[in-house]
Design a protein around this nucleic acid. Structure first.
Length: 555
RNA sequence: GCCCCCGUAGCUCAGGUGGAUAGAGCAACUGACUUCUAAUCAGUAGGCCACAGGUUCGAGUCCUGUCGGGGGUACCA
């Protein structure tokens, strides 16, 4: 595949030169896969690009390039089409070669080494332990984990990291929320402020404390105990929820450690040293106006507490110091304003901010039928990730979040997810996989060894459906590589649906015409078709694995 | 006010660094099972790509503005 691209590219370059149109670089030759069959397998718009410069008709330019083109081996033909595209038609030998490659590489098919040697950190979720993960967190968790998987599949060494803070005001309110529920349970009349955590899980934690410690914790000084209990219980639940989704973090990074190791102070000192921090009205300000921002920002409040910017900068400095080649931050749209200051901070401290890639995903709008549900952890009118998975399972949950691009608002209709789960496209893809497993099983019971692929005569695969299937399977490595390069997991589900569609069509032809069935009396042909089935199964299984979704053998 | 994301079929969404006739799923309609799983396939219908300008050989894609939805714009995170 790759070699054909470069061969065609080189051939076009040579032809352009021979035709007297000058010397181009390989990057200037766009080679794209055709959307329509009549347009061959690959096409280039180089003639269209050259035409205005040469002040000539693009079709004529294309024709002249074609005249000088030495067709690379494996390419059946090339022609000029439309306004001046040059299209290439791959020979069948190339397709059969791809099929062999899939079978040979098996579980490794689609993986590459393009990121070899690169150490990448992906930070995501990073929710403080104040309550169960919601559907909103779910989108980020699944996107982050899948981006990490894509990077791993393309040869990067990846660290999944979760950043949290268990020392702030929110956590104190959390602890006090538990304490007050505890006192209620112990029979005392206590006030429960409206802006406290209202969720039922607070009562559960309070009940646990009551059971373990009795009813004697009446003093305000016991607050730390309640806070600890809350943090432990909630974090345990968060980790369990993530695990259910198939997500395991390598590092949980506590903001507190930045203070304990003096990294916060160091940042302030460094900024002061560069005259980028100063005191005003009892607060410490970051002179962002000197770094191209519209105004300065407070980094330490007059109360002595830092704002989120300071630890964020120190944390990112620490990421840089840990030697990651690339740091990827995945944030929700509500954090969109926070990262410019962090990047400015890094730059001020002498780091290259281009090592940080910030990916912003839009919110999940949760609806139940027509009604919008506003999600807020504090108010407790949220649907948790666990509740969602109870309804539809982790596979559907992951697929739902990955199906759409992260820059798009995601409308999650809970009613639809619950009642129409049978029609979820994830089943369509999984079913194709199960169907293949079933047909292979069928072949085995019919006395044909499905593993006898290598010596199968693939040249017997000649129907349109068969060749179309090979063509799409051949695209898998490129899809993975593009999805990883652009951090766009949603390309993979779309691709897999297409593979499933082409496969279903292929298998369906056997229903209409018995001679087109996979398992027939014609043993060599049966073996060739089984090889195609196995290759399809490999692509579906590898693709689903990349998404963290199971590939069932039966459904 | 200013900044960011979004606006594409009835609904939910795709549309490589601008390219050929704008796609898919669901919903609707028509047809296809003696099974290799019909959890499937084929077909029909459905569009002023929010609107108005601009850039050029060519714009859903890039630029400007307007309208509509979401998010930011704190000594909250």
């Amino acid at each position: 595949m790759k070699s054909h691209l470069t061969e065609i590219r080189n051939a076009v370059l040579a032809a352009v030169e021979k035709a007297g149109f000058g010397t181009l670089t390989p990057e200037e030759i766009d080679l794209s896969t055709a959307k329509q069959k009549e347009h061959g397998d690959l096409g280039t718009n180089v003639a269209l690009k050259l035409a205005p410069r040469l002040k000539q008709n693009p079709r004529k330019v294309a024709g002249m390039i074609l005249d000088h083109l030495a067709l690379p081996e494996g390419i059946d033909k090339a022609d000029v089409a439309g306004p001046g595209f040059i299209n290439f038609f791959l020979g069948r030998a190339v397709l059969y070669g791809s099929l062999e490659e899939i079978l040979r590489r098996n579980e490794a098919y689609g993986r590459s080494e393009q990121g070899k040697g690169s150490r990448t950190q992906v930070e995501f979720v990073s929710a403080n332990p104040t309550g169960p993960l919601t559907i909103g967190h779910g989108r980020q968790a699944v996107i982050g984990d899948t981006i990490a998987k894509l990077l791993e599949a393309t040869g990067h060494s990846v660290t999944r990291e979760y950043y949290f803070n268990d020392a702030g005001r929110q956590m104190r309110i959390l602890g006090d929320s538990v304490r007050r529920r505890y006192l209620e349970l112990a029979g005392e009349a206590v006030e429960f402020p409206e802006d406290y955590y209202q969720g039922e899980y607070i009562r559960d934690i309070a009940r646990g404390v009551l059971q373990d410690k009795g009813a004697g914790l009446k003093s305000e000084s016991d607050l730390a105990l309640f806070q600890n209990r809350a943090e432990q219980a909630i974090f345990r639940d968060i980790k369990a929820t993530l695990k259910r989704l198939g997500i395991v973090f390598d590092v949980f990074y506590n903001e507190k450690s930045l203070y304990e190791t003096g990294k916060i102070d160091k940042v302030i000192k460094a900024l002061r040293g560069k005259d980028l921090a100063y005191d005003r009205e009892g607060a410490v300000w970051f002179r962002t106006s000197k770094l191209g921002m519209d105004q300065d920002r407070v980094i330490v409040k007059s109360t002595g507490e830092p704002t989120y910017r300071l630890p964020d900068i120190a944390y990112h400095k620490d990421k840089m110091d840990r030697g990651f080649d690339r740091v990827i931050d995945i944030f929700g749209a509500d954090h969109i304003a926070t990262y410019p200051d962090v990047l400015a901070g890094l730059k001020a401290l002498g780091y290259d901010p281009s090592r940080v890639t910030v990916l912003i995903h839009q919110f999940v709008t949760l609806t139940e039928g027509r009604e919008k549900i506003k999600m807020s952890t504090r108010k407790a009118n949220f649907v948790t990730l666990d509740e969602l998975m109870d309804e539809v399972g982790p596979d559907v949950t992951r697929y739902f979040f990955l199906n759409r691009s992260m820059s798009s608002h995601l409308n999650f209709d809970l009613t639809l997810a619950k009642t129409q789960s049978d029609e979820n496209p994830v089943y369509y893809v999984q079913y194709a996989h199960a169907r293949i497993c079933s047909i292979i099983q069928h072949a085995r019971s019919a006395g044909v060894d499905p593993e006898a692929g290598p010596d199968a005569d693939l040249g017997l695969l000649a129907s349109e459906e068969e060749l179309d299937l090979i063509r799409i399977l051949k695209e898998f490595p490129r899809e993975v590589s593009e999805a990883a390069l652009h951090f766009e997991p949603h390309r993979i589900p779309a691709y897999l649906e297409e593979v499933a569609n082409v496969y279903h069509r292929f298998q369906h032809t056997g229903k209409v015409d018995a001679a087109l069935r996979v398992v027939t009396d014609n043993i060599p042909l049966t073996r060739a078709r089984l090889a195609l089935c196995r290759a399809t199964r490999i692509v579906l299984a590898n693709g689903l694995d990349l998404l963290g979704i199971s590939a069932p053998e039966r459904m």
